[in-house]
Structures are given as structure tokens and as C-alpha cells.
Amino acid sequence: MTLDDLRVFVAVCRAGSLSAVARELDRTQSAVSQHVRRLEREAGVSLLERRPRGVVPTHAGRVLCDAASESIAGLDLALRRLGDLVDGESGAVQVTTGGTTVRHFMSEAVVAFRRRYPKVSLEFRTETSSRNCFEALTTGNLDLAWVTIDGPVRGIEQHPVVSLPWALAVPADDPLADLSCVRTAELSDIRLIRLPGNSTSGARLDAAFAELGIRSSSDTSVADWDTALLLAELGLGHAVVPVLPGWDVPGDGPLRLVPLPDLPPLPVGWAVRRWGALSPIARAFAEAVARSCTERAVNRSTVQGGHGHDPHS
């Protein structure tokens, strides 16, 4: 049993396909199968169940995959930290996050961090959901994941950074555009543009709706909040969205964000395997992003407080 055997096995469990891992690693499918067979011989049990459309781990396979994932991630992190100790203020910070997160939450921090640490490489891996970010953080050689804060996740620490208020995105000529806020009762008769239910933020919004007794209709689904804003502006419906720091929707433009004070704010922040095990460089980046987000949230609240109900002034 070698470390390479375990790496390949974990990759197969995650991909659910021997051929996909073979392509990813630029190896033959036979070579990938040999790694799995060697592990099965040493373990004395079957680790994968072959199915028509791929493979899934058996119960024994899941046990080995979970243990191997944690061990490999810990070893990779230790090797990275040793490299950071040798390089001083060089090395790399690897982050997994959504496709638009850097623009909305990290742009100012990235610029400031690059000026402070010009030799450090910033590497971003895009995932489509917080759940995928958790999985990538657990199984991959990554430092940080920017996520919607969720319930407990095995082997992961979550550190909230900022809570995002919700708003209703409506065209400027909509009757709701001039309201100071929209109460939950008014949402029941509105056709909404929604995120898929398998996204963490979409699930949290659905849970809040259910708790408040809101029954809304929806015939349009999008993969991200930016697209929801665009479709709302085009008149395809209204969008309940968190007010992201990176949005620049002018008060006199074609779109309005009307506050939804009845909905609980959406917490977002960092997920890590162990905060205390982060390299000094990775921690410096995480703190720079948190500081930037906090300052922007304070500035937004100050601006809104000085301009009545218009959230974009």
C-alpha cells in the first residue's frame, strides 16, 4: 500500500469513474485499476462496486476513503507548511470558492495581499456550491474555502466573516421599487427567480420561507445571484438575493434592491480543516479578506443609514 495507491483510490471514489481518473492523471485505466486491486489485496475486502455507469465505494471502501482523505490532506498540508518555513514569505495560498466570489468578496483584499506578499502565489479553484467546496477542501491540497456557512461538516471548521442582508431585486418601474422594504406576506404572490435547491444559500432561503410560511411560485432557476439580478432587470421575475459587497447597482439605474427585513441574514465566511494548522501566509490572506469584508459591510450600513431606504445611494 503506497501513498500513490491511496491518492488514486480517493480520486476514483470522488469521481465515481476509473476512466475519468485515468484521463485526469494521464494514465491508462489499467494502471488506475492496479492501484485499486493492490489496496483490495492488502485490505482483504472489496473496496469498489462496479456499476453500469461507473463505480461506487463499498462500505469498506468508504471507511478507507474517509481515513485516506484526512491523512493525505494532513500530509499535504504539512509538506506545504514545511515549504513555507523554508521560503519565508513565499509559497502559495490555495483557495476553493464559487465562480464570482473573488469579485464580490475578495477583490480589494487580493490587491492588498499581493502588494504585501509579492512572492506568494494565489491559486483559486472554482466549485459550483459550498458542498463541493467542503468536499474539495477535505480531499484536496487546499488551504481555504469561502462558503455559505452551514451546519456541522465532519473534519471542517467554519468561521463566519459577514452576514448578508436579503433584498428583493425589482425593475425600477415596478410598483415595489419605491417601497422602503417588503414584508414576507407580500412575497406570496410574486413569481421568483431562484437558485437551485441543492445550493446551500438556496436551501437556507427555502428554509426561511418555510419557517415564515411563505409560498412563492418560481419558473426560473439560475446558477448564481448575478444571473438572478440580470433576469430581474430584464423583467423575467423578481429575485430574492443577498446584498453582496461587490454589487454596484445604482439608485437611479434599471434595477432596485428593496430590503427584506423579515428574512434572517445569510452568513458567509471561511471553512478550513483546522484553523490552527494554517500556514502563516494562508492565515494572513484569510484575515485580509475578513477585514476587507467587514469594512465594506460597515461602510455600506453607514451609507444606507444616511440615505433613507435606497440601498444603492
Rank of each mutant, 00 (worst) to 15 (best):
L142W: 00
R204S: 08
D189E: 14
V170T: 06
L205V: 01
A145I: 04
L212R: 15
V153K: 10
I156L: 06
T200G: 09
V147R: 01
P196V: 02
G213S: 14
P171R: 13
R215V: 10
L142R: 05
Q158H: 01
E157S: 11
N141C: 14
A145W: 05
P175S: 12
D178C: 08
S216G: 07
L179P: 09
L192C: 05
R183V: 03
L164F: 07
I214Q: 01
L195F: 04
Q158T: 00
L168N: 04
P165T: 04
I156G: 02
V147I: 12
A203L: 13
S163A: 15
S216Y: 07
G213F: 08
T138D: 05
V153H: 01
R194C: 08
T139E: 10
L187Q: 10
L142F: 06
L144M: 08
V161R: 00
S199G: 07
G151L: 08
P175R: 12
I190P: 07
T148Q: 04
L164Q: 10
T184G: 12
L179F: 10
D174I: 05
A172G: 13
H159T: 13
P171K: 09
F209A: 13
L195G: 06
L195I: 13
I214G: 00
D150N: 06
V161A: 07
T184E: 14
W146E: 00
